[in-house]
Design a protein around this nucleic acid. Structure first.
Lengths: 178, 178
DNA sequence: TAGAGTCCTCTACATCTGTAGAGGAGGCTG
DNA sequence: CAGCCTCCTCTACAGATGTAGAGGACTCTA
């Protein structure tokens, strides 16, 4: 579908050149479509932004399924997956920052992982699971952010490798302890 | 100094409107200077970006001094301070994202907290302090990011309050445990 | 096959943006 | 005082950008 072609190109652009790289014509070029296509589907820039954010949300909608006998491992593999999907994750961060001065975007980006984390904390017997879940989510977010954009060269093992998963699992285990 | 006036206006702009809001003329207006001023001090946009990032780095250069008898409390207060300085912290995140497709910026943003964290982990008797320090830094970063831009309404207590510091301290204590 | 409706491409235009340089005001040096 | 230098303001301009609408190609229905 043409619409998805456009939003996907927008995501790639935002990841590679930041929000500033997101222009109607740049999307046209990137998607290999004739000039004006993006403008026809998303007349205003705001619509274009909302479009690509909705696409992001749509792609990440699927619930994270975890094996109870290897919780930390499963979570670690999920995080590693996000690192591998570098572009999508970078675009998501750009969108979150954008949502700061563009609140409508928050409605689109429902943050389901958050509730899952609370439930998890409850199951693990944390007192105050709400708070523990929030902290856990923050930790995950931080790990991801740090490995993706922070730290420079010392950002840890290459994503997608067993070593990366092992390192992440080690961190997750620590964070899961009650 | 005029130069600082300009970079400070740039920081505010980036925080409030994102990287896209950073244009020479917008900085002029924001700083209350005549048109062309920003362009005179930072001829290219790249120079302007490097200028404001350098200013950010300069302002955060001071080492974080910690009271050994209340480590977690001190760190919590530091984080809370970053939350209060919302604009500066938001601008820093924008800059980090920017550094992703603009590597020269990484040179400017030397990340001294990182080494401090490693030293701290070592002092606290973690085996593998390097890794523990990295994880700790990631956790802090995540807490900060989550409370600043993530989570929407459930982003926790208002920054600057005692409750905020208490909540952060609780999280930091957990993260500091070997 | 005619007509209606949809989807797409192209072109237009006001505005904004990056970048450059001319030239003036004011201070410092001799 | 004359000359020079630095700092600043103003104006210019090519190119990019957001947004709009005209009109063509194509598809579906009767």
């Amino acid at each position: 579908m043409r619409r998805d072609l456009i939003t996907d190109a927008a995501i790639a652009l935002v990841a590679e050149h930041g929000m500033r790289g997101l222009t109607h014509r740049a999307v046209d070029r990137r998607a290999g479509l004739p000039e004006g296509s993006t403008s026809a589907y998303f007349r205003t820039r705001k619509a274009l932004i909302e479009g690509f954010v909705a696409r992001l949300a749509e792609q990440e909608q699927q619930e994270i399924v975890l094996d109870p006998t290897d919780l930390a491992g499963g979570i670690a593999r999920t995080i590693d997956g996000w690192l591998v999907e570098r572009n999508r994750t970078l675009a998501r961060y750009a969108a979150m920052l954008e949502a700061t001065h563009h609140p409508e975007l928050k409605t689109i980006m429902v943050h389901s992982p958050r509730e899952q984390a609370t439930a998890l904390a409850e199951a693990l017997g944390h007192e105050d699971p709400e708070r523990a879940g929030a902290h856990f989510t923050a930790f995950i977010e931080g790990l991801l952010f740090y490995r993706l954009v922070g730290g420079g060269s010392t950002a840890g093992p290459a994503p997608g490798t067993e070593e990366s998963v092992r390192d992440l699992k080690n961190a997750v285990e620590k964070a899961l302890r009650p």
